[in-house]
């Protein structure tokens, strides 16, 4: 465990809690893509099945349970408790365009052809693109609330910090997880455009709106 990994996990947790608090306090989930949140719930579900088969550490187990709870609570807020405020008309990304190729790819390119390992691979590939419905929604409406941009910033920062973690682990432990690294790079690239807007607009006190 290194400092990049810890900061990455904290950033990930912060992002999810920020989103939950935003929805809870405003009692409104307008501008949030329910489809992205469903994908994240699916990511955690398929990745953390090893909770039942493989004990890594208390930290690992506790974080996995918290991530799962946060993901499902967020989905419940959007499609259950505050569904009247859910902007489904702008959440129109076609999920099959992501799910079909990623399912195929996880069967083709994995570490071992076993159900748990294929599901883990599926979750890594899916996570790299799970934010696309959210980014698509923002490009469609042309704006995002500032709190939503903070959420996206920490979510992107998490995977960028994991890149630093992998470089560190490669040099100190000779650890190298090709599937996670390649997907992590792809995932981080999707946030670059957003990072630019976040720094040039949101951090200068302006609302994120697209021309």
């Amino acid at each position: 465990m290194n400092v990049f990994r810890i900061l990455g996990d904290v950033s990930h947790l912060l992002a999810m809690i920020l989103l939950l608090l935003k929805i809870w306090r405003s009692k409104c989930c307008t501008g949030i893509s329910g489809k992205s949140q469903i994908l994240f719930a699916l990511v955690f579900t398929t990745r953390y099945l090893d909770l039942f088969t493989n004990f890594v550490s208390l930290y690992n187990t506790v974080m996995k349970v918290i991530f799962l709870l946060c993901a499902y609570l967020t989905v419940y807020m959007i499609y259950g408790k505050f569904r009247k405020t859910f902007d489904s008309e702008n959440d129109t990304f076609r999920l099959e365009f992501l799910l079909v190729p990623i399912t195929g790819l996880s069967f083709l390119e994995n570490y071992s052809f076993t159900p748990l390992e294929i599901l883990w691979t599926f979750s890594i590939y899916l996570e790299s693109v799970a934010i696309l419905p959210q980014l698509f929604m923002i490009s469609k409406t042309g704006e995002a609330e500032t709190i939503t941009t903070h959420y996206l910033f920490f979510l992107g920062l998490y995977r960028a910090l994991y890149l630093a973690n992998w470089i560190w682990r490669y040099h100190t432990e000779n650890f190298y997880d090709q599937i996670a690294v390649v997907s992590g790079v792809v995932q981080t690239i999707f946030y670059c455009d957003f990072f630019y807007l976040y720094v040039t607009k949101v951090l200068k006190g302006k609302k994120l709106s697209l021309p």
């Binding site: 990930h12 088969t53 550490s57 690992n60 570490y111 071992s112 883990w120």
Partner: peptide, 10 residues
Amino acid sequence: KDQEAGHDEL
């Protein structure tokens, strides 16, 4: 890395 040992990252 021993893949059989499982994945230790989140």
